[in-house]
């Protein structure tokens, strides 16, 4: 990633609250680089997704190369390099949920939101036209007893049926 590319983006910096949070984080580890994941989470919450400018800023803060940040961002599925909807809907589709008909829930969401399922390299595919929702499949969410489950942003919804999905979406 060259510097010219980065300059096209709007520069990124932590707001006051996140800066305070970041200062707290950095004191927890003997090396700054170790604060990478929590810092990226913080930055993603502020910026919406990880832009090159965010990576550059995080790299400066943690005193590592931009490449190293990129390295980490591309490894973890929870970091987005493209814009996502206001609500990110994660549908679990691993075996215990599959045994309890998660496909029905997913198909219903697809029809209702009129969108495809996002892939890791193409988040736009699963984002609704109004930019409100991003629909994606994820691996086990560790709630197999209340399967099928979905996560909308930070909240978990359990024992879903298509009717319950409607209810959940209406209450957002």
């Amino acid at each position: 990633m060259s510097d010219e590319l980065i300059q096209i983006e709007t520069p990124f910096a932590f707001n006051e609250e996140n800066q305070r949070e970041f200062d707290k984080l950095i004191g927890r580890y003997p090396i700054k680089e170790a604060a990478m994941l929590p810092t990226l989470h913080l930055a993603q919450r502020q910026a919406g997704y990880i832009t090159p400018a965010v990576m550059k800023y995080v790299a400066e803060q943690l005193e590592v190369s931009v490449m190293k940040v990129k390295d980490v961002v591309t490894f973890y599925p929870m970091f987005f390099e493209e814009p996502v909807g206001e609500y990110v809907i994660r549908v679990c589709h691993t075996l215990p949920c599959a045994l309890r008909d998660c496909k029905e829930v997913l198909d219903h969401l697809k029809a209702k939101l009129d969108t495809d399922v996002a892939s890791e390299t193409n988040l736009a595919k699963g984002t609704t036209a109004d930019g409100k929702f991003t629909l994606m499949k994820v691996e086990c969410l560790a709630s197999c007893d209340v399967a099928p489950v979905i996560m909308i942003n930070d909240d978990l919804y359990k024992n879903l049926t298509p009717e319950k999905v409607d209810e959940v979406l209406n209450n957002l």
């Binding site: 075996l95 215990p96 086990c140 560790a142 197999c144």
Partner: peptide, 10 residues
């Protein structure tokens, strides 16, 4: 805790 089928730690 990510092993499919495990949810006790949660």
């Amino acid at each position: 805790e990510s092993e499919p089928g495990t949810f006790s730690n949660r």
